[in-house]
Amino acid sequence: MMLDFYRRNEAIILGTLSLASIGVVWQFVVDAGIVNPFFISTPSEVFAEASIQLESGKLYKNIAASMYSFVLALGLATIVGIFLGVLAGWFRDVESILEPFIWFKYSAPTIAFYPLFVAWLGYGTPTIVAIAFLFALTPIYANTLSGIKNVDRDLVRAARSFGARPLDVFLQVALPGSVPIIVAGLRLGVGRALTGVVVAELFGASAGLGYSIAYHAQLLETSKMMVSIVVIVLLGVVLTQLLTWLEKKTDSWRVH
């Protein structure tokens, strides 16, 4: 009975066990005096600190600030990325026009242009959104492009045999066929937008999870930093899982 239950849920049980033991070891090395809590805090202290921040509304404020920038940046990147990707996927000349710049974007660490954005937009939300937007844009554009460009030729031929016009082929064949790969691009974009937001917040912001880390780092308050770090990791996992779920849903018609 027990063994049966274990076998069916082995991945979940062992995974939980592993996460739990990380917490236990973390608490233990501090309690046993092996590591100074100043460096790594402890799970119990992080938890206590999280409750305090929750109650005072500080945690909520920081999450809200980061999510505001995140949603704005991801929204913009989605619109621009899909728009350009569709154009470039459908019109080869547009792809040629954009290619060198995308090429450059691939190899240039966007963050190197951070001081430039500060010069243009000042410290704060506009710069954070701009950086996160650029972080998220590339995978969304690239996936949309490849989805539209690699439209199934058999399907195009079948559509044409019934007299489909270019717009029909685009709307009925190329676009629906690209949905799963575009959603996969969004999934990558989510992680990158989050990175962009919190990294840009490290450098200059007045609220947000990244800001909170940088702020408490200066005061050497490890527990308070850890709260934001844990929240960011959780946000990353939850958001990505959400998109993975969406990806599977839109991909259900594919023959596996």
Binding site: G15, S18, V199, L202, I229
Partner: peptide
């Protein structure tokens, strides 16, 4: 077994922006 045990924390760190650990690294 190694995979079942280590996959959840590894995936979390793979997805999460590890750059946020920078301030902690600076303290250490």
């Amino acid at each position: 077994y190694a995979r079942l045990l280590l996959d959840p924390p590894l995936m979390a760190l793979y997805i999460a922006p590890t750059l946020i650990l920078l301030p902690i690294m600076v303290i250490w």
